[in-house]
Amino acid sequence: MNLQDLGLYLTDASLEGYKFECQLVPGEVEVLQVVIEGFQEIPVYISVTDTQILCITYLFSEDEVNPESKSQMTEQMLEMNIPMPLTSFASIQGRYVVFGALSINSRFEDVAHEVVTLGENSVDALSVMAEYLK
């Protein structure tokens, strides 16, 4: 999966009424930042490894969580994990994220679908988790 091609595809595409704005961030590991129209605050970051395509959206940092309700929140995340399609909770370097992992052989359409799902699920997840935030 070439991220530049994916970026071009997404910029031209319109899926389920959403449009995308893409920016390729070069580096040792390339990252494609995808902003879904309407969800500017929570971009989706895509990177490709040997085995999978990772799509990640940052929800909030650990500091934003009320310390006394943290365990309740993580419990809720675990419970939401399976019912929430194509999206899982994780934690990276002190930040809570939702992510989807796709096969390296996925089509652009599949990635686009994942991106939209991730965006919509992020908003849902944020709505649910908001009560645990400061």
Binding site: V29, V31, S47, L54, R95
Partner: peptide
Amino acid sequence: ESVHKATSAISDNF
């Protein structure tokens, strides 16, 4: 290893 690299890159960018 590769996931860590990828998430680090994403994290930096973020």
